[in-house]
Amino acid sequence: MSVPLSILDLAPISAGSTAQQAIRNTIDLAQHAEDWGYHRYWLAEHHFVSVASSSSITLIGLVAAATSRIRVGSGAVQVGHHTSASIVEAFGTIDALYPGRLDIGLGRSGHRRAQFGTRPEYPKKSHPVVDTVTGRTEIRDGVVVPPPFDPGRITDRSKFIASISALQQEGAQPLEFADQVGEVRALLDGTYRSADGVALHAVPGEGAQIELWLFGSSASESAELAGQLGLPFAAAYHVAPGTALDAVDAYRAAFRPSAELAEPYVVISADVVVAKDDATARRRACTYGHWVHSIRSGAGAADYLDPADATPLTPEQQRLVEDRLATQFVGAPTTVVERLAALQRVTGADELLITSIVHDHEDRLESHRLLAEAWGLRAARAA
């Protein structure tokens, strides 16, 4: 039986369009996704770039209001930019009207120690299985595992540093990630105490019917913490294909049963473009490299280009994004389903998280619809 499919949305802004239209497109896609049988609809958080999901929790509330069954959540809240109380109270407010449908995904992005330039962390004696001499890509049973991307290749960090300053009060020091996760859990279950021992209760928020998730892209703190706490874990293959599979392994190795889970539960993400045939899908996906390059150059995600107007990437630009191009799932439904099935098989994922970015909204709708049909989501709902 096929595992569930879910959607991760950044509310991308296409060249020639607006943030307002991108938000309308998000609501439209979420409503279609519910009808097509997708399990969850998660929103990413990004700031000062050409995506309209900067206030992701606000957008989660709008999506929840526009749908009736599909689970809605964050993929993920950048906890370095939020207090634990603000996260729980915001989600608790949405849960008060749409109980039992929300997922809080927490990620380390936004923490000072997760800034550009740090190298991936791995458990002792655990490293990506790549050729460290030549940096060659490995193929694991049909799944592409490129060498890990080195954030040190991003030379212009000025916008990132300015963004951190704008998103945090002067002098603010984010908590350690594990401590903030602990605060969120305590606020949800009603056991929170201040540093002085004073009991505080999140209203609304305490007792909310919300699933808590951790997100990660390498075999580092997030993966191990999710396992140790017995929480479900989402691995970002679409962002870090060179290390995401190691994150899954680290999570399972660290897993301890909890009140939330008796066994590990893994979601793994993939960037997907589906069309009626391989050639059409490749044409619609051909500016994905330009978009990734805008991120990795340090400028941040740019407007998503129309394939009809874009010039080819230079060889130097191509080298900066080649791992992401090699691990994008592009093609006709059968082509993409075969590759996604391999990703699920190799990782043992319990669920796949699909993100799809193309210039035209109708093409993005078609991509998700064709995938849902080919994966059998309609049949699963009917059953």
Rank of each mutant, 00 (worst) to 15 (best):
residue 214 L to C: 10
residue 182 G to K: 04
residue 128 P to W: 01
residue 196 D to F: 07
residue 194 S to Y: 07
residue 130 V to H: 12
residue 156 D to W: 07
residue 183 E to W: 05
residue 171 G to F: 01
residue 158 S to E: 10
residue 232 P to V: 05
residue 124 K to N: 13
residue 209 Q to A: 15
residue 239 V to Q: 04
residue 129 V to P: 04
residue 208 A to W: 11
residue 229 L to E: 11
residue 142 G to H: 04
residue 126 S to K: 02
residue 223 A to Y: 01
residue 192 Y to M: 07
residue 122 Y to D: 08
residue 186 A to V: 11
residue 134 T to D: 08
residue 213 W to L: 12
residue 137 T to H: 06
residue 192 Y to P: 12
residue 237 Y to K: 03
residue 201 H to E: 13
residue 133 V to F: 11
residue 237 Y to F: 11
residue 141 D to Q: 15
residue 131 D to W: 01
residue 156 D to H: 11
residue 111 H to Q: 11
residue 205 G to Y: 07
residue 161 I to P: 00
residue 129 V to D: 14
residue 152 G to Q: 07
residue 149 F to T: 03
residue 251 Y to L: 11
residue 177 F to Y: 14
residue 123 P to Q: 04
residue 163 S to N: 14
residue 191 T to D: 12
residue 223 A to Q: 07
residue 247 A to I: 05
residue 202 A to Q: 09
residue 232 P to D: 14
residue 117 G to P: 12
residue 184 V to L: 12
residue 218 S to G: 12
residue 153 R to M: 13
residue 117 G to W: 02
residue 135 G to I: 03
residue 124 K to H: 13
residue 253 A to D: 00
residue 172 A to I: 00
residue 208 A to I: 05
residue 220 S to R: 08
residue 228 Q to W: 00
residue 174 P to Q: 07
residue 239 V to H: 02
residue 124 K to T: 09
residue 162 A to I: 02
residue 220 S to D: 15
residue 128 P to Q: 03
residue 185 R to H: 15
residue 191 T to N: 05
residue 158 S to L: 01
residue 109 S to D: 06
residue 207 G to E: 03
residue 167 L to N: 01
residue 111 H to N: 10
residue 116 F to S: 13
residue 205 G to W: 05
residue 110 G to M: 04
residue 252 R to D: 02
residue 125 K to V: 02
residue 226 A to E: 09
residue 119 R to Q: 15
residue 238 H to L: 08
residue 193 R to K: 15
residue 159 K to Y: 00
residue 166 A to C: 01
residue 234 A to E: 06
residue 115 Q to E: 06
residue 120 P to S: 00
residue 192 Y to S: 06
residue 209 Q to Y: 01
residue 190 G to W: 06
residue 128 P to T: 11
residue 189 D to F: 04
residue 163 S to H: 02
residue 199 A to E: 11
residue 154 I to H: 01
residue 128 P to R: 07
residue 236 A to Q: 06
residue 147 P to C: 00
residue 173 Q to L: 03
residue 136 R to G: 15
residue 196 D to M: 04
residue 109 S to E: 05
residue 172 A to T: 04
residue 253 A to P: 00
residue 242 G to T: 00
residue 115 Q to K: 04
residue 209 Q to T: 02
residue 130 V to E: 03
residue 188 L to N: 06
residue 160 F to W: 03
residue 113 R to E: 09
residue 172 A to V: 00
residue 230 G to T: 04
residue 186 A to Q: 15
residue 139 I to R: 14
residue 241 P to R: 09
residue 170 E to D: 13
residue 120 P to D: 02
residue 118 T to K: 02
residue 130 V to A: 10
residue 150 D to W: 02
residue 225 L to A: 12
residue 135 G to C: 08
residue 233 F to V: 04
residue 212 L to A: 14
residue 200 L to C: 13
residue 203 V to R: 14
residue 116 F to E: 13
residue 145 V to I: 11
residue 132 T to Y: 15
residue 137 T to K: 08
residue 151 P to A: 09
residue 200 L to S: 05
residue 110 G to S: 05
residue 223 A to G: 14
residue 143 V to K: 11
residue 199 A to D: 02
residue 240 A to W: 04
residue 253 A to I: 03
residue 211 E to N: 09
residue 201 H to Q: 15
residue 160 F to G: 10
residue 112 R to G: 14
residue 215 F to M: 05
residue 122 Y to L: 07
residue 147 P to R: 05
residue 144 V to I: 12
residue 194 S to I: 01
residue 221 E to H: 08
residue 239 V to K: 00
residue 212 L to Q: 14
residue 151 P to E: 12
residue 132 T to N: 14
